[in-house]
Nucleic acid binder design. Structure first.
Lengths: 210, 210
DNA sequence: CAAATATAATTAACATTGTTAATATATACA
DNA sequence: TGTATATATTAACAATGTTAATTATATTTG
């Protein structure tokens, strides 16, 4: 039946929307089956008619958040001139997204998954999250010879590890203990990797430094 | 009374030892009040006569593990010639420690703390964990002019963020999905930061690459 | 040494969690 | 309309952290 599929999809969406809302607001620590079901307007057991378990549901949100993050980044960087400066701002915007929604950082990088087996695509989305957000900018830089193509993977990986390390220590261990110090650190790390060392930043995201 | 203090200290040690044993073995996910108390040979409620709550107890283990990690690193690197090579091996050994005991990585970097207020010293131990392990080696390099002192903090931070990012993705997201690829990544990142780019590694820890 | 008191350890109990089984309700079809 | 099927809800379970009540054990005091 076609109706059944439509209805099932709708039901799933109700639960997914509820889960996303909690993750963006109270965060992962406030996620519970009863909490989600409340927000969706159903009983907690109903959830199990549409999802294997609560992890299944939670990790379905990853794709939506990744899309949202990408849009967030684009809206924050479209004024920056294309090129390495825009790469830098893109990475900054990526960081800002997770600082604004720490619960989503928890979901992407900290949450434990019961069964990794059938979630490989989700894991891949997460692992490529930053690359995905930066992809078109990298392509631009390569096409304009703004960076040697053989350095591309190296830059991507360095940025990925640095950004995750920075966010983890700041969001989870309050190190550094102020936002401005954290942003200074991020600025320095990114400049270092992209070879913008001499750097007086003039790009837009400097405004976020508070 | 002095006896009371001695006895109290002993009791605390029993619980701490039990907690450490579980963390090193089954990992953080297997920690529970009843589990710890079982291993310590007491009832679960007894724990609350000596610790405010279970987080209090868990985070007391951090200092011991940091010490253990330092000894682990020393034993793995003492044959390497002092200098930047030994810095590199030290970082590798640090990584190996957490790969061997992923539960301790969870404790150090992933575990959520209910109340950050009175745990600031613990947070500091964690945030300075890698620097602490490398400290004497950095001092050596500085004293022999093997690296300019004004670059010291930069190197420390770059290594810290890269190492935490690498470990987080590997241990928590299985990325890269093989140990040897992970070690290759680590090798590359460390070389890059320390300026050993041309690199054919000859130091001891290469043996761990499996 | 024995009784009274203080201290420490245990069991009982509660609220919250994820999940499953049993039951009720709505929908589809004859 | 009445029966079969699908879907939603309540009840129940086991495990969690934590606190209160209770029991056992030391310690002090006569």
């Amino acid at each position: 039946m076609k109706n059944k599929e439509i209805q099932e999809k709708r039901m799933k969406e109700y639960f997914i929307q509820a889960t996303k809302s909690i993750l963006k607001g109270e965060g992962l620590k406030s996620i519970s089956v009863r909490n989600i079901a409340d927000q969706a307007g159903y009983s907690y057991a109903t959830l199990y008619n549409y999802f294997k378990d609560v992890n299944d549901l939670i990790f379905l949100c990853v794709n939506d958040f990744q899309e949202e993050c990408k849009l967030f980044v684009i809206s924050k960087t479209k004024k920056t001139p294309k090129g390495l400066d825009r790469i830098k701002d893109t990475v900054f915007a990526y960081i800002s997204y997770f600082v604004e929604y720490p619960g989503i950082f928890d979901l992407f990088y900290l949450a434990r998954v019961g069964d990794f087996g059938n979630k490989q695509t989700t894991i891949n989305v997460i692992s490529n999250s930053l690359d995905d957000v930066c992809e078109s900018e990298w392509n631009y830089c390569i096409s304009r010879n703004l960076l040697p193509i053989e350095k591309l993977d190296s830059f991507k990986n360095q940025l990925k590890y640095a950004v995750i390390g920075l966010l983890l220590l700041y969001l989870n261990r309050r190190t550094p203990d102020s936002y401005s110090e954290f942003m200074d650190q991020a600025n320095f790390q990114i400049d270092n990797i992209l070879g913008l060392n001499n750097s007086n930043r003039t790009s837009t995201s400097i405004k976020n430094e508070n």
